[in-house]
Amino acid sequence: MKKSYAILFALTTVLYGLLPYALLRHWGGLAVLLFWVSSALLWIIFSLIILEKEFKGV
């Protein structure tokens, strides 16, 4: 596991959970739902791309 990926993973996971809480007043309502769904999908696609690279370095 590359350190850069690990740091990115930890930061993204924390941001994923807490960003809607930090910015809820400005976003509100459906924006939170759309943020969680779309960023989870992006994260899955991004992870699958990293997985291809990760197997070369195990």
Partner: peptide
């Protein structure tokens, strides 16, 4: 967030 973290661990 469970799914995102699990896919992350399975990847890294």
């Amino acid at each position: 967030i469970y799914l995102v973290a699990t896919v992350g661990f399975l990847t890294l």
